[in-house]
Amino acid sequence: MAWKMDNPLYSLSDEQEQQQILKMWGEERMGGLIHPANNRLPFPLTFLIALIILTAFMLTMPIWGQRPTAAIYQTHVELMNSPEVQKLATAEEKMKYINTEAYNRAPDNALKGQLERHPIDWYDLQNLAPHIIELQKQTKYPLDNFTVLGDKVVLANFEGNFRADGVRERKQPWWDKGYTIDVFYVSYYCLWMFIMIKRLPHFSKKPVTT
């Protein structure tokens, strides 16, 4: 079990130990099976694994797949009792007008994207409106701290930073402690795999059969 640290990218075990392992691999027959070959991790596989780790973090960020917040329907609530909407005959016509107006008034592409992904119908809007109007009267949490679930509005359970007044932010973050844990977890895995693999005989050496 001697460790050799002078060239860790080559091997972490000394020559004598590598030879012992190769001799055992060469002689051993397990139910007639030859020991697995001492081939390296092919470069495309190493590349693919790096790509998977990068993809895992990039693809799962909370900014993707955001839930609708009460804030994105503020314009809808403002417009629903306006004379322009009231004069329209059907629910479909009302919603078509409101959706178009809300989209056009959205100040940035982020909100426009949210509106496209979370359409709402007239009856859900009627149910939501009183809740949103009530929430606009309070100051503890801004509207984007509330999630819309169907026809209900609930305080989101995101655990953001504490504000100066001691209240925790409930807005959907772009990074959270789950990701921080993942960074350490994946790092430990990579370190463990590096040690496991580099403790084996170097891939240029093949099992010695006698």
């Binding site: 998977i52 895992a56 973090f57 799962t60 359970n157 995101f158 789950g178 990701y179 844990i181 994946v186």
Partner: peptide
Amino acid sequence: EWLKSFASVEGV
């Protein structure tokens, strides 16, 4: 949500 974030990365 942080637990879901952790799990989602592990899932990939």
